[in-house]
Amino acid sequence: MGVKLKVNTYVDIAVVDLKEKALDASNSEKLKKSMAETLNDYEKVVLDLSRVEFVDSSGCGALLSCLRQLGDRGGELKLCGVQKNVQRLFELVRMNRIIDIYPTKDDALKGF
């Protein structure tokens, strides 16, 4: 079983709504797999993390892996809806410097 996620499309942009409360060592590998399957057809992707309360280092690793996969194909990944505790972790490991983070989904869509 993969992670729960829902994909909506806005013209050529895929918005992935991650329906998990935590992104940690127990599901980070699954996220990588599900995202790889989902994202093959898109170059512009927004990952909505507004339901995610907790991310650990392996969660960060999975996000970086998605970023790299898309980047290899010339695509772009943006995040939105990042909760405070998760934002603090991203700053701690300096992820905020290499992934664009927007407050809301609309801001992210405008960012492309």
């Binding site: 650990d56 280092s57 960060c60 690793g61 999975a62 970086l64 490991v93």
Partner: peptide, 13 residues
Amino acid sequence: LDRPKEGGMGVYI
């Protein structure tokens, strides 16, 4: 940290 990688961050965190 100038180029975060997928592994090795746990101990640092």
